[in-house]
């Protein structure tokens, strides 16, 4: 199982750029890009900050994705 996210979808729904979201949660734009591309798994603190910003639960944005071969 791997962790996937819908950050890009939520960001687009709220009309936010990657830089806007980065400024709001106190990270760099590169971090947001890496999270959206599933290249970086955020810490629990950052995941909570992002979910609180969109006023949803953490698992609405970050969730486990079942692998095809498992």
């Amino acid at each position: 199982m791997a962790v996937d996210n819908k950050l890009k979808v939520y960001r687009a729904n709220h009309n936010l750029t990657q830089q806007d979201l980065a400024d709001k949660v106190g990270v760099t734009r590169q971090t947001i890009i890496a999270i959206e591309a599933n290249k970086y798994l955020p810490s629990l603190g950052l995941a909570l900050k992002i979910s609180r910003h969109f006023q949803v639960n953490v698992e609405d944005i970050f969730f486990y994705k079942e692998d095809n071969d498992s």
Binding site: G26, Q30, A34, Y40, S43
Partner: peptide
């Protein structure tokens, strides 16, 4: 300048 968590990782 704040070091963000990805930089620290």
């Amino acid at each position: 300048i704040k070091a963000d968590e990805r930089d620290i990782t």
